[in-house]
């Protein structure tokens, strides 16, 4: 079809190749760890994007879901010696269930009021973590969380197993987001963001879709949390504060709300920035603040937040135009 389309394919293919071959470039474990963190934050951004970018519900409490995924996974791995995959699944489901519970108030609440409920939820999660000693080990945190072990193979930084596991999960979540967004589900979510009443007048049960958005978003975030727990092998309540919720939100908005590509860039920028700006000490957060303000002023839709100008493909027509191109050539 159009030239742009093939350019896109080439760009995506080379990024995938680069990601697959990255361990061959011989980066230090420190660098690889940061790359893996970037992957985790991309997953987090993709998760929050479903709510903020597509459905228009602003969550200020995604650190809560991240924590539930992380603690759920770690608890089952440590206390019940469950394998990584099962524990991660449990952590994801737990987080998804909490997403369902937190999604219920969306039936009655909107805007700022909903945001404050999500914020309160994350605060409550943090307090529960600090006090539910028998499960979370209180303020001491959970340590010695085993590295993922799949089919008898230990995945760690040294053998790059954990890097490829990250790539796999990231690919899975990206594909999942893509297929959901490009289906009637995604269309409905975007319609809800645009105009709730008009969406209802299309005969759509918007409450169900808002709750679904919460469940999906929370599950993805919980998945990232479970993976994060095994990567860092130690978690405590400090890892899941309000700052984290805000950081994910900034990634989504900086990269470009309602786009998938934007989540990759947003996460990469905000993870790399503090690393390369380390010599700036505390000034780096001042710079960070200025970057946010300047971005919001000059490019509020985010760096990659443009609307696609490509022709919308209508099946049947596509074949026709193919044939025409062939004839012309």
């Amino acid at each position: 079809m159009s030239e742009k389309f093939t350019v896109d394919k080439i760009v995506i293919a080379s990024i995938i190749l680069l990601l697959l071959g990255l361990p061959l470039l011989g980066f230090s474990q420190y660098v690889m760890r940061i790359v893996i963190l970037m992957g985790i934050y991309t997953i987090l951004a993709l998760g929050l994007n479903i709510l903020v970018g597509y459905t228009g519900l602003v969550s200020l409490g995604h650190a809560g879901f991240f924590a539930i995924g992380a603690y759920g996974t770690a608890y089952f791995m440590i206390q019940h010696s469950v394998g990584f995959i099962v524990a991660l699944t449990i952590g994801t489901l737990l987080s998804g269930f909490m997403g369902f519970v937190l999604g219920l108030p969306t039936i009655r609440l909107s805007g700022t009021y909903l945001s404050i409920v999500t914020l309160g939820f994350a605060m409550i999660v943090q307090v529960v973590i600090m006090n539910w000693d028998s499960v979370t080990n209180g303020t001491l945190g959970m340590s010695q969380i085993p590295k993922p072990n799949i089919l008898g193979y230990d995945l760690n930084l040294a053998n790059h197993g954990i890097y490829y596991l990250m790539l796999f999960l990231l690919g899975l979540v990206t594909l999942g987001c893509y297929t959901i967004i490009h289906s009637k589900i995604g269309r409905t979510l975007r319609a809800i963001k645009s105009d709730e009443l008009a969406t209802t007048m299309m005969g759509i049960h918007i409450d169900r879709y808002k709750i679904l958005a919460f469940v999906l978003s929370a599950s993805i975030t919980g998945l990232a949390g479970g993976f994060y727990a095994t990567l860092s092998s130690y978690i405590d309540h400090n890892s899941f504060g309000f700052d984290l919720s805000i950081l994910i939100l900034c990634m989504v908005i900086l990269g470009g709300m309602g786009t998938i590509r934007g989540m990759y860039l947003g996460a990469a920028l905000l993870i790399i920035f503090p690393e390369i700006a380390r010599p700036l000490m505390s000034w780096r957060f001042v710079v960070y603040g200025f970057v946010l303000i300047i971005m919001m002023h000059f490019r509020p839709q985010g760096v990659l937040g443009w609307r696609s100008r490509r022709k919308y493909p209508i099946p049947g027509e596509v074949k026709k135009s193919y044939r025409m191109v062939e004839v012309e050539e």
Partner: peptide, 21 residues
Amino acid sequence: IRLFSDMRVIENVLVGAHINT
């Protein structure tokens, strides 16, 4: 007018067709 202004023309129609999709 209350269209889904950030969506394409065809997408507006497809949201309309949601209950039959």
